[in-house]
């Protein structure tokens, strides 16, 4: 490691993000944050959660791809991460389907005394 130029040829080959890219991502993220707050004041009804989640997903994708360098990383790392998301979706999806069907049948245990019904 005495000779810098010599060692330079054997550094890890990793992607170095240009500063303008990182700064651009930050600005986009901040703008999207403002957007999600602003949109929340529009009366979108049931759509609002979809919009909110969509904006969050875009923000998350930006963080993962650029701040976490996944775009330039080994594809398997991307696979690992997407598997995790997929399994979360499966877990929540199945349980959600189920809970919508059984929850109406849930009866609370008999209340004692003053019941807030």
């Amino acid at each position: 490691m005495s000779d810098t130029t010599h060692a330079d040829t054997h550094v890890v080959h990793a992607h170095i993000s240009p500063l303008w890219q990182l700064a651009g991502i930050l600005i986009a993220l901040l703008l999207l944050t403002v957007a999600t707050v602003a949109v929340s004041y529009a009366n979108l009804g049931n759509l609002s959660i979809l919009v909110a989640l969509l904006i969050a997903a875009v923000k998350g994708t930006l963080v993962v791809l650029y701040f976490m360098h996944l775009r330039y990383d080994a594809p398997f790392n991307a696979l690992v991460f997407s598997m995790a998301l997929l399994f979360v979706a499966l877990m929540i999806g199945f349980t959600l389907i189920d809970s919508r069907q059984y929850q109406p049948n849930l009866t609370p245990p008999p209340a004692v005394g003053n019941v807030p019904e």
Partner: peptide, 23 residues
């Protein structure tokens, strides 16, 4: 270490609209 910190950020990105912006 940066990856970990970004994940913390990532989770908050989802927590914020889900908890604070319910309409």
């Amino acid at each position: 270490g940066g990856l970990y910190w970004h994940l913390v950020d990532l989770i908050w990105i989802f927590l914020f609209p889900l908890l604070y912006l319910i309409r």
